[in-house]
Design a protein around this nucleic acid. Structure first.
Length: 590
RNA sequence: GGAGCUGUAGCUCAGUUUGGUUAGAGCGCCUGCCUGUCACGCAGGAGGCCGCGAGUUCGAGUCUCGUCAGCUCCGCCA
């Protein structure tokens, strides 16, 4: 179909364009046919403008316009003029375009939902018709922010003398970490490539190849269950540097964040960011990614309740656990039902129960009050800075578990009491540092790397590798904003013997190490510079910039919670021939 | 792997507690009218596999079991 090409854009027309003869291309956002007068809102990527067809002057155009429906594609030629009835709600509202000629370029089926912001359409319908969902201005804006993020990143790292190198998408499957997506090899039947969980090994090899400063905006793949902030394929801003220490990376990334927030939101982020140890983050906030926009910190009240007759507390103390609490300011308004809900909430995190104390009307109300004498209560009240109107939530458990439970309750209560809403426009960036190198996997009875197996232990803790692995600290760091992890990195092991030892500590046998990581250990022996880096979750950065809490909003074609792509119907079965060519055979169900 | 919520018209939802005549509303859609609308207005009309499958029952949108899908969370995600 022939069409007249536009010479301007709908969304950019303003009062000063009055009198200009123009051509527009776009989609019909809405049509208001008054009989003697037809108004059409024409939409393109840049916005909306009202065009008018006047049957009195052009009955031929009016006749053609009768067929126009929402989402039809039009070209229209006309003259910009001031409106007699301006619309102050839209940027182009002072003017309109009187149509002198137009045609329908393409029709549209009736859309299953209006292509409009603020629609209330189910996720399933929107994903099935993702192309229509993406047409909505609010979605287009998310991707404008995403684009801006790419551009700022590339410019920032270019300016800082980084070089972008692409790493393979088909690589070797290695143990440790997330489940790999596997790709069968046709040429080497029975063998598989894996999609990268991250380009970790390649970027380290690029360091020993002498690239010094590497970055890449790169897709990563992890075959794990999805969440509102997790997709099986996602994008990382991947960075690695040689001859540097931790603070070089932290400073570099702070600079990037400052530039991103300035460019995208015109928001001034203050640096340097606060740095908090993992231990402190857990003790005070019960999370390794604490939200520091508000208080409600955790207090260890073990000493205060040590002398009580409450069996639950005494048993916990006897087993080496702790009693800890948060003070939910103004929480005494919560009903018994609300507190029961909080108890259920706590149970998801492994809590066996939840003790609480309400302070109201000068009195204390608590199911455990009978175990606490006057002195203990007043001690707690002063330690927790509790006043009338407050609610104290108490967890009694192993140290980290008690903290995690209270950390989760802290966020939940902040949501319920409107604290989250009150701070929603703030950005609180900080670093969590000094992570443990290992954590113990109870199920498999072995140590696993908390960050990844290439992370360097702190020099002063290396001796503890053999005697007390659990207390070895890592040269690792996470970037956190508003309770979300934006990225993490570490200074790497650059000594092949230490790398070998690390794998041993993780329970890998020499043969397995040779088989899975031999090439890497070998590479480390050819003059590896000290190096380290970080990977930032680009999708999460864009989410934060865009102010959305769902990762699907910032990925053009996302998967559902069960990993399906509803628009194109993947994953799907393949024909027998394809399997045969790959040397594969499906197991029959059960 | 587990838990919770949801599934009824194109869309958003009511109806399910306590089974019972022809399953409703708003928006959208279709037709007609309408010269200043911008959530246009007015009049009329069409539109249903009550997610799917079993079961209970004289009778199921409603009760039971299973299953599928969407969302959120726990586990998982170095």
């Amino acid at each position: 179909m022939l069409f007249k090409k536009r010479n301007t854009k709908c969304g950019i027309l303003r009062q000063e364009d009055e009198g200009k003869k123009i051509v527009l291309n776009g989609w019909v956002a809405s049509r208001r046919d008054l009989g003697g007068l037809i108004f059409i809102d024409l939409r393109d990527r840049w916005g909306l403008v009202q065009i008018v067809i006047e049957p009195e002057n052009r009955p031929d155009l009016a006749e053609k316009a009768k067929d126009i429906r929402d989402e039809f594609v039009l070209w229209a030629e006309g003259t910009v003029r001031s409106r007699s009835n301006p619309n102050t709600k839209i940027p182009t509202g002072l003017i309109e375009v009187v149509v002198e000629d137009f045609d329908i370029i393409n029709k549209s089926e009736l859309p299953p939902f209006p292509v409009d912001d603020n629609i209330e359409t189910g996720e399933e319908t929107k994903l099935r018709y993702r192309y229509l969902d993406l047409r909505r201005p609010v979605m287009q804006n998310y991707f404008a922010i995403r684009n801006k993020t790419y551009q700022v990143c590339h410019r920032y790292f270019e300016k800082n003398d980084f070089i972008e190198v692409e790493t393979p998408v088909l690589m070797k499957s290695t143990p440790e970490g997330a489940r790999d997506f596997l790709v069968p090899s046709r040429i080497s039947k029975g063998k598989f490539y894996a999609l990268p969980q991250s380009p970790q090994i390649f970027k380290q090899i690029l360091m020993l190849s002498g690239f010094e400063r590497y970055m890449q905006i790169v897709k990563c793949f992890r075959d794990e269950d999805l969440r509102s902030d997790r997709q099986p394929e996602f994008t990382q801003i991947d960075v690695e540097m040689s001859f540097i220490d931790r603070d070089d990376i932290l400073n570099l990334i702070e600079g990037l964040i400052i530039e991103l927030w300035k460019e995208v939101l015109d928001y001034d982020v203050a640096a340097p960011f606060m740095r908090m140890s993992y231990d402190e983050a857990m003790n005070r906030f019960g999370s390794d990614k604490p939200d520091l926009r508000f208080g409600m910190e955790i207090s260890d009240i073990t000493d205060a309740v040590r002398s009580t007759e409450f069996k639950v507390f005494n048993d916990t103390i006897g087993e080496g656990g702790i009693i800890a609490a948060i003070n939910v300011k103004g929480g005494s308004e919560m009903s018994r039902k609300n507190i029961d809900e909080l108890t259920e909430f706590a149970k998801k995190y492994g809590a066996k129960g939840l003790a609480w104390m309400k302070f109201a009307n000068g009195e204390v109300n608590s199911p455990i009050a009978k175990f606490l004498d006057e002195a203990v209560i007043s001690q707690l009240k002063s330690q927790l800075n509790a006043q009338d109107g407050d609610l104290i939530l108490i967890s009694s458990d192993k140290k980290r578990r008690a903290q995690t439970i209270l950390g989760a309750l802290r966020l939940e209560c902040a949501k319920r009491l409107g604290i989250m809403d009150a701070v929603k426009d703030k950005f609180s960036f900080h670093w969590v540092i000094d992570f443990p190198l290992f954590e113990y996997d109870e199920d498999n009875e072995r140590w696993v790397a908390m960050h990844h197996p290439f992370t360097s232990p702190m020099d002063e803790d290396i001796a503890l590798l053999d005697t007390d692995p659990g207390s070895v600290r890592a040269k690792a760091y996470d970037l956190v904003v508003n309770g979300a992890e934006l990225g993490g990195g570490s200074i790497r092991i650059f000594n092949s013997d230490l790398q070998q030892k690390m794998f041993n500590k993780l329970g890998l046998g020499d043969k397995e190490i040779e088989d899975k990581f031999g090439f890497f250990i070998k590479a480390l022996k050819y003059g590896t510079p000290p190096h380290g880096g970080i990977a930032l979750g680009l999708d999460r950065i864009v989410m934060t910039l865009a102010g959305t809490d769902n990762i699907r909003d910032v990925i053009a074609f996302p998967k559902t919670t069960s990993g399906l792509s509803l628009m194109d119907g993947s994953p799907s079965f393949v024909v027998e021939e394809q399997l045969k060519e790959l040397g594969l055979k499906l197991l029959s169900e059960k």
